[in-house]
Amino acid sequence: MIQSPGLLLTILAFVLVIGPLVFVHEMGHYLAGRWFGVKAEAFSIGFGKEVFGITDKRGTRWKFAWLPLGGYVKFAGDMNPASQPDPDWYLLPAAERAQTFQAKPLWQRAIIVAAGPFVNFVLAFLILMGFALVYGDGRTPPIAREIVAGSAAAKIGMQPGDRIVALGGRSVDTFDDVAKYIQLRADETVRVDYERSGRAVSADAAVGSQMLRDRFGNEFKLGLLGIAPVKPVWVPVGVAEAPIVAVKRMGSILTMMVDSIGQIITGKRPVSELGGPLRIAKVSGEQLALGIPDLIGLIALVSINLGFINILPVPMLDGGHLFFYALEGIRRRPVPPAVQEWAFRGGLIAILTLMLMVTFNDLGSFGIWKSLAGLIG
């Protein structure tokens, strides 16, 4: 077992993961705004009181704040979380008002807002494309080399040489597809479609479960079908094919994210599996201890998460703004300010509640609650 990284290494890794991702996300907003002639008053990495910063010749204050859990770009005319202007905005000279966020047409405001999540996806795409070029692409066919006795696969009559073509109605191309699907469905019943000597066979398998412990002592409950793969196949990837491989990997990651969230919402997976900044810091330290490539891979994963979460239609997030812009486009007029204000207040409450919950979970993953229970007991 690898020794868990110390506090300083964990903090360093967390900064190396979150810092660039926040910067890239906000830079997407900033560059899109600048492209459309919107003045940026502030570009902040972190929230709260400024630690240090500089002001450039365009009047933008570039700063670092004391709470490094996010960031923001404050555009001229963008006065509150609902992107509504201050009443004094109407008193600005025409030239100054033209450089404000609210003066821009709807489609430009939508692009500025969407640019943040978009560059997160672009960053992940570039990392995954680089990995494909360096390491190639795993294409082990979904063929059973061996069936574990007493396993879910054995109970439905699978035999060595059978080729899985679909799980739960979702087609699979590689053994990796099989593993990712099954791992999320411990103790569930899954339809397995497979081929034997060209003949199609279908059966419902009761997926087993297993508790695994990683190299840092973390335990995970994973689904188990009970088939051993044939010899792994890794194929070199050229420059022309690398983008295709990267897109497929991003699609696979997004699919797993949606599946996981859906299982938590439906109660198939415990809410305790939701993690926040503290758990990200813990995993960051562990990945850095394994090596720089592992840390870069984590950056790609977190970047996809950040982009995906921000496009959800939740007030306070980029997706919430885009949702109201869509309504504005349909209605041909903005949603009433009072409605937006209440929606964003609700969104803020929901996000703060979620943050409290994931922080509670994170502390549990560090063993805090078990330790307290032991002291009380």
Rank of each mutant, 00 (worst) to 15 (best):
F52A: 11
G130D: 00
I112K: 01
F118H: 03
E41Q: 11
F121Y: 09
F125T: 02
R58M: 11
K74C: 02
S44G: 06
G37N: 14
L126C: 07
D86V: 01
A82R: 01
P85V: 03
A114Q: 02
Q108W: 05
Q99V: 09
A152D: 09
V38E: 09
S83A: 12
L106Q: 06
V113Q: 06
V113H: 05
V134N: 10
A42L: 10
V148Y: 00
G46V: 07
A110S: 15
P85I: 02
G59V: 07
A115M: 05
F75C: 11
A42E: 13
Y30N: 04
L91N: 14
A115K: 02
A95V: 15
N120R: 06
A76R: 01
S151Q: 10
L128I: 08
S151V: 14
I127L: 07
F125I: 03
E50T: 13
L123I: 01
G70A: 12
L31A: 11
Y72Q: 07
G33N: 08
V73S: 05
W89S: 01
P142Q: 14
L128D: 00
K63G: 05
A98W: 01
N80M: 01
G136H: 02
S151P: 12
F36T: 09
P141D: 13
A152N: 08
A95G: 04
K104H: 07
K39T: 12
A42F: 01
G70W: 03
A149Q: 13
T100Y: 00
P68H: 08
W62N: 03
A98Q: 12
P105I: 08
P141L: 14
V51S: 10
V113F: 01
G33H: 04
A144I: 08
A153S: 10
R34P: 13
P105C: 07
Y72D: 02
A82F: 00
L133R: 02
W89C: 01
G53I: 11
G33C: 10
A98L: 07
P142K: 14
K57T: 14
A153D: 12
E96P: 01
E50R: 14
A114N: 03
I127Y: 04
E41V: 14
V119R: 08
G71F: 07
I45G: 00
K63P: 04
S44F: 04
W107P: 13
G48T: 12
A94F: 01
